[in-house]
């Protein structure tokens, strides 16, 4: 971001857009999927954060959520490049999804009941289990969030973080002073300058922000997670088939890891005698006929992008400079929370 984008202009733009795009149009059985086919590309709303979504030096989008967007393009068009990424700030992304600016939001949105039932969004399977953390300077000598009575807390606006931190302090009957800043760089600068004692954000994001500080080793992430942040793909209500394509694309990524299928061995696995693998990879084409999907969509996804584990390790895993542990984001068979329903 060369220039900090400012909220008023953006809110107004969203408002104008909301009015403009709501011009009368006939309703379809599956309006989103029809629009995608007509356009010839899936439009994906993303954020900007290295590891999750960022354009590389040649302008090609890369990252954990970007790969999931490409998997969707394979499921619909059998081509990982028939996808358009649109970057949206945390403030702007939900109204933009509502107004149809993109077909799916893959920007690390937390699934909540109000977003589902009040805003009218369907959420696909959780692709990243996160939780809000508290980053503090080591020299404060604080070991728990409960020691933070009277602290000043830097919060970035537009996330569920504002609510969680208020809830956490109220539940523990301690007081805090919020400084809510929208601009990301200003947010980091304020914390670094000592304007706040605490920076709060999803723990995954805090890890990245800590790496951006001048002396990361002087800061420590407190052990508590003050919230559950299941990050899931979000789509508008009104297109059931599109929802199922999103669901089963994510499940295909999870299932392939559980079955031990990787981008390296997927061609060998085609010869596997295991009936569940044969169905999954489309060697046995019965699933394709039943679902009206390309019978080999799971094969094509794994071949091009790898399974969930490979996508995680490549973009944000311990070997990358982001350096996240898998934690809860492991298959249920390995003690994590990733669980795909059966492909049959």
């Amino acid at each position: 971001m060369a220039y900090p984008k400012l909220l008023p202009a953006r809110l107004v733009a969203t408002f104008v857009l909301a009015v403009a795009t709501f011009a009368p149009s006939p309703a379809f059985a599956g309006p989103t999927l029809d629009k995608i086919r007509e356009r010839g590309a899936v439009k994906v709303g993303v954020g900007t954060q290295p590891g999750f979504f960022s354009p590389d030096s040649s302008g090609r989008w890369q990252g954990f959520f970007v790969d999931i967007g490409r998997a969707l393009a394979i499921a619909v068009f059998n081509d990982p490049d028939k996808v358009e990424f649109v970057s949206a700030s945390p403030q702007q992304r939900l109204p933009a999804l509502q107004s149809g600016e993109f077909d799916i939001l893959l920007s690390g949105v937390t699934e909540t009941i109000t977003r589902a039932l009040q805003l009218g969004f369907h959420f696909g399977p959780v692709v990243f289990y996160d939780g809000q953390g508290l980053l503090v300077p080591k020299k404060l000598g604080v070991t728990s969030g409960k020691d933070l009575d009277g602290a000043t807390v830097c919060i970035q606006t537009g996330t569920t973080g504002e609510l969680n931190i208020s809830d956490f302090f109220r539940a523990n009957k301690i007081a805090f002073k919020p400084v809510a800043i929208e601009d990301t760089r200003e947010f980091i600068k304020a914390f670094e300058a000592g304007r706040c004692d605490v920076m709060t954000q999803d723990a995954s994001d805090l890890g990245l922000k800590r790496a951006l500080l001048k002396t990361p080793e002087d800061y420590v992430l407190l052990p508590e997670r003050i919230s559950k942040e299941p990050l899931a793909p979000a789509i508008r209500w009104g297109d059931d088939r599109w929802l199922e394509i999103v669901n089963w694309t994510v499940y295909a990524l999870i299932q392939s890891e559980e079955l031990g299928i990787t981008s390296q061995n997927v061609d060998e696995k085609l010869a596997s005698p295991d009936p569940s693998i044969r169905r999954f990879l489309g060697v046995d084409p019965s699933l394709g006929a039943a679902t009206q999907l390309d019978p080999k969509f799971a094969y094509a996804i794994v071949k091009a992008l790898g399974n969930y584990g490979e996508i995680f390790e490549r973009n944000v895993g311990p070997a990358t400079k982001i350096g996240f542990e898998r934690g809860l984001n492991r298959p249920w068979t390995a003690g994590g929370l990733l669980y795909a329903p059966p492909f049959r």
Binding site: L7, L11, Q91, P95, T157, A180, I181, E182, E186
Partner: peptide, 17 residues
């Protein structure tokens, strides 16, 4: 809103969200 003072626009945007 850019520098973190809770003016009307800042509160409006949080409320909208």
């Amino acid at each position: 809103v850019a520098i973190g003072f809770p003016d009307l626009v800042s509160v409006i945007s949080t409320s909208a969200n």
